Simulated scan of single mutants.
Amino acid sequence: MGWGDLGCNGEPNRETPNLDQMAREGLIVSSMYTAAPLCSPSRASLLTGRLPIRNGFYSNNTAGRNVFLFLLLCLSAAYTPQNIVGGISDDEVLLPELLKEKGYTSGLVGKWHLGHQSQYLPRKHGFDFWFGSPNCHFGPYVDLVTPNIPVFLNDNMVGRYYDDFHIDRQHGISNMTQLYTDAAVDFINKVASKGPFFLLWAPDATHAPTYASEKYYGISRRGRYGNAVMELDAGVGTILDALKKQGVDKNTLVVFTSDNGAALVSKQDGE
Rank of each mutant, 00 (worst) to 15 (best):
F138P: 06
R169T: 14
T181H: 08
I167E: 02
Y161S: 00
Q178F: 14
H137E: 01
D168P: 05
D163S: 09
F152T: 04
D163P: 06
Y162Q: 01
H137R: 07
V142H: 14
G159C: 10
N156E: 15
F152A: 00
M176K: 02
Y161M: 00
N135P: 08
F138E: 11
V151H: 05
F165L: 02
D163G: 07
V142E: 09
C136T: 14
N175C: 07
L144R: 11
P150R: 03
I149R: 00
M157T: 15
Q170H: 11
R169D: 12
H166W: 14
N148V: 06
P140D: 01
F165W: 06
P147R: 09
H137K: 11
Y141P: 00
R160M: 10
N154E: 01
Q178E: 13
D164V: 07
R160A: 06
N154A: 02
L179H: 07
Y141R: 04
C136W: 12
M157Y: 05
T146I: 13
N148A: 02
R169H: 11
V142G: 10
H137A: 09
M157P: 15
N156Y: 15
Q178I: 12
L179C: 04
L179G: 08
C136P: 05
F152I: 05
D168R: 04
V158M: 09
M176V: 10
D163R: 09
N156V: 15
G139M: 05
V142M: 15
Q170R: 13
G159N: 03
T177R: 11
D164M: 00
N148R: 03
D168S: 07
M157H: 06
F138Y: 11
T181V: 10
N148F: 03
G159R: 12
R160G: 07
F152G: 05
I173M: 01
T146F: 14
L179E: 10
V151D: 04
G172P: 09
F165D: 01
I149G: 00
D163N: 10
T177E: 13
Y180M: 15
